[in-house]
């Protein structure tokens, strides 16, 4: 193990320029991927904000007894899809209309009879805010005898679904493409290291080193380069994030950065890329040597 570590570290000392090039390449590959990741998580966050506004409103027939409403509210709150249910009385609905619909304030003020019905506003849990679930819950709400009508903005929810799917697919494809490019670039830089050390490898083989012994230092070196590249990419991503957030004049003030677990994921991904690049390049080199 000591020999393995020593040989892996020696390569940094022997070829500082090439090692720096490898680390920078990994860092920039991951930086590009990281920037895309930042866009993706911020888009997802924005979508989540929109999703939270998904709401089903069930209008209640006039004269429905309060006990019935209370029981039904408890019943609906127990649906697995439902996050919470708020009962809005006729008076509360009118007060809200007067408060929020400023242009109709005078019309509402002069009313002799409250035309607005009571309603139950149902918000769904995260993960159930797609068209299919919304429709299913709406259907169940319609089953209550005292429910006059159910509204949830079908088109809006469907658009949200579409947006979510498109974002997911485009994100996956572009992310995969970036990752593939990163793997190829990293493989090429490690191959350069190998070509530079071909003589050393041939001597190792000559004196009876096993292929795994030869691979060991290269794999460790690849993993170390991946680790350093991953850390550097995070620094670059954070700098880019700060620059974009602070120079946007407040438009993107709410942008978020990676969570700690995501940062660890990026660094580990760097390590994995370094390992894979080394494994593939060394394997190919040993097969052809």
């Amino acid at each position: 193990m000591r020999l393995l570590t020593r040989e892996a570290l020696l390569s940094f000392r022997r070829a500082p320029l090439l090692s720096t090039l490898s680390i920078t390449t990994i860092a920039f590959s991951l930086f590009t991927l990281g920037l895309f990741g930042l866009v993706a998580i911020n888009l997802r966050e924005a979508l989540r904000g929109l999703e939270e506004r998904v709401e089903i409103v069930a209008f209640v027939l006039r004269g429905t007894p309060a006990e019935t409403i209370t029981l039904a509210t408890q019943d609906i709150a127990a649906f697995p899809e439902v996050q919470d249910v708020v009962y809005v009385t006729e008076e509360q609905a009118l007060a809200r209309a007067r408060r929020e619909l400023v242009e109709f304030r005078d019309a509402y003020r002069d009313l002799q009879v409250n035309p607005l019905p009571a309603s139950m506003e149902v918000r769904l849990r995260n993960g159930y805010r797609d068209a299919a679930h919304v429709e299913r819950v709406a259907q169940r709400l319609r089953g209550f005898g005292f429910v006059n009508d159910v509204r949830f903005g079908r088109e809006w929810v469907q658009k949200l679904d579409y947006l979510r799917n498109i974002t997911g697919i485009v994100g996956f494809v572009i992310g995969l493409a970036f990752a593939a490019v990163a793997v190829v670039i990293i493989g090429v830089t490690i191959r350069l290291t190998l070509l530079q050390r071909a003589r050393e490898i041939s001597i190792m083989r000559l004196v009876g080193a096993t292929n795994w012994f030869i691979r060991g230092p290269f794999l460790l070196e690849g993993a170390l380069k991946g680790l350093l590249g991953g850390l550097l990419s995070l620094v670059l991503c954070y700098a880019g994030y700060l620059l974009f957030r602070d120079r946007s004049g407040g438009t993107f003030a709410g942008l978020i950065f990676f969570q700690p677990v995501q940062m660890v994921g990026i660094v580990l991904f760097g390590v994995l890329l370094g390992l894979c690049g080394s494994l593939v390049s060394v394997g190919r080199h040993l097969r052809h040597a």
Binding site: R205, L206, V207, G208, A209, T210, N211
Partner: peptide, 12 residues
């Protein structure tokens, strides 16, 4: 996998 074993018994 046996090639290294042979080479350890040779000097080149």
């Amino acid at each position: 996998v046996e090639i290294p074993k042979l080479r350890r018994r040779l000097g080149v």
